[in-house]
Design a protein around this nucleic acid. Structure first.
Lengths: 335, 335
DNA sequence: ATACTCTCCGTTACCGATCACGTGACAAAA
DNA sequence: TTTTGTCACGTGATCGGTAACGGAGAGTAT
């Protein structure tokens, strides 16, 4: 039992060659409608499922892509993953998902594993400054889409979130609403994404000639945001607005403010980054810089797919815009 | 450029046969330490990566498993996925993740796709009453782990969450805290998980001779929970405790209660199900029946892995216990 | 010296598809 | 009648590994 039906079985049952069966299932080459119909019927009866493994051996296309994320349980990633998966399904591709916990060693290991597995392309959140590994993989492997980290390589594509613009949006909003002491909570782990958000923040602060020293760093978690906000408010009580590295920190900051007896948004305004689902449901809900994560996933797959089809074409980097979403953690002055 | 290094290249470079190289990388068969070391060195130099595709052709093991979930953006699933992925990585396996949106047609399609892709086993949240598809897949394919739906088949394993016990825990808690009018919000989509939770609830209610009519059904979302709770409270104002199908509905119910001017937990107590991350962070935080999702994922993979290694052994169904987590949405009477 | 064992490694076939080419039948054109 | 062409399908090689088996050479027992 359970011995799988192969193309040879179908061929024998239909009294034709394997090649003809292959033609029938792939709609390729010359084949008479009669024969094809007959073969398809037999395929149905036998429950034959073509092996993509075997097909991949010849075509050098496994119809799989790898998706490398930091941690799928981080609310940011599932939406991206879903976008990738949906786009992949449209193209009859499957997606292998791996986590790195933002550890460079793990990132390298899982990526190698994916390549070994035979994926046609890899979408990776490469959130580390070291690009050498990626570059050599670009040489030895091929289609890679690097999100967040710009890598110059003929086989590597780039997708970038407008992190700096997001920071500018937040700071400008604060300034327009008469905030003069604006703080930021940043991630203590050095990541390319972080750098851009912080630099954007600092640039915007400088543009408005404000005090640039209200920065505290902590792990980018809810607890980290809580601690960071507490520290910031203790040190600089005059602060009336906080921009956070991501929404998790923003939510932690909200709790810290409330626990410290500061009212939101009357005493303190807070803007996060990413717009994870939780932010809209929180009490009070968190204003944030939205990134369209689902669309990002779809875009990422479409690009890597195009690259797989046309490897040597030149592609320009993809940019994901951001959007300021105002909710209960900010209060606009009435005009 | 980019032409992949094959085992033949390594063999030629080392002046040995492919078989010997194979022996070197797999530590299998007789090979002298010298030769092996020499080959490994050349592998390193050439940047050779064995193709799992090719290996899979012979061994009939792709070292991939499929994970079929309802929707990876549903906060319940990422943790499960992470558990599966971590356990898989320990065994040098990769995981293909697919979504079904709980649509039977999609579930069948993605499962077929996974099999075609060559996975060694499939872990699926098969949340529909129709088992025939699963049974025939069990015949024609092999190792499948069905979560939530019991399927009797020599090739299919089962993993069950103690849904009924969870409901009992909730009702018993309510009763012990002097609640007499206990309602439930249920999912309007008919799923096996739902049935068990509702039956458990009804049984527990019956055991305590309480009114079993306080049930309202709506989609199992935040908005659905909101509407359902509103309806329930309008119809039966005497209700003082609500058990919800899942946490999302529970959170929606909290909002509805607050909007209706009912205090939580003073006027109304609420218990959800699943313990998604959001529940602990909400204001007020939601009491719930916790399911250890990460562990569930790990267990699921370990079982399917064991099954892959020993297909014809008999395995008993796995049970995941649940736990009552008390938070701010419930108030215990002081003893 | 012969036979036997044990190491170590090579040869051949094969996994399940596809690709490039080859072949036979039949019809239209010369 | 021969040539040319087209259609429909078959043949053999191939993708990159592994399983099964076989064989050469060194060492040991008879």
């Amino acid at each position: 039992m359970k011995q799988k039906v192969t193309i040879a079985d179908v061929a024998k049952a239909a009294g034709v060659s394997k090649q003809t069966v292959s033609r029938a299932i792939n709609d390729k080459g010359e084949i008479s409608p009669d024969t094809k119909e007959r073969i398809m019927l037999i395929i149905e009866q036998l429950g034959y499922r073509p092996s993509r493994l075997a097909r991949a051996m010849n075509t050098q296309r496994s119809q799989m892509v790898g998706l490398v994320v930091g941690d799928i349980t981080n609310p940011f990633f599932p939406e991206v993953a879903r976008g990738v998966q949906d786009a992949a399904m449209d193209r009859d591709y499957n997606v292998l998902v791996c986590n790195t916990d933002d550890k460079p060693a793990l990132a390298t290991a899982v990526t190698e594993s994916l390549i070994s597995q035979g994926v046609d392309g890899i979408i990776t959140f490469w959130n580390q400054s070291d690009k050498s590994t990626l570059l050599s993989l670009g040489d030895s492997f091929g289609p890679i889409l690097s999100i967040n980290t710009i890598v110059e390589h003929p086989q590597i594509d780039n997708l970038l979130v407008d992190n700096a613009s997001g920071a500018t949006l937040a700071v400008d909003y604060f300034v327009n609403n008469n905030h003069e002491h604006i703080g930021m909570l940043t991630n203590s782990i050095n990541q390319t994404t972080l750098v851009r958000r912080v630099q954007g923040f600092q640039q915007a602060i400088a543009d408005h000639n404000l005090n640039p020293n209200y920065i505290v760093e902590h792990p980018a978690t809810l607890a980290g945001g809580y601690e960071a906000a507490k520290t910031l408010l203790n040190k600089y009580p005059q602060i009336s607005a906080i921009f956070t590295y991501n929404d998790l920190m923003g939510l932690g900051a909200i709790r810290a403010c409330l626990d410290a007896g500061r009212k939101i948004p009357d005493d303190i305004s807070i803007i996060g980054f990413d717009d994870i689902q939780l932010s809209a449901m929180y009490t009070p809900s968190l204003s944030t810089i939205r990134v369209d994560k689902y669309e990002m996933g779809r875009l990422a797959f479409e690009r890597i797919f195009t690259r797989i089809e046309q490897p040597d074409h030149h592609y320009s980097p993809l940019h994901m815009g951001v959007e300021l979403i105002l909710r209960e953690s900010t209060k606009s002055i009435t005009t």
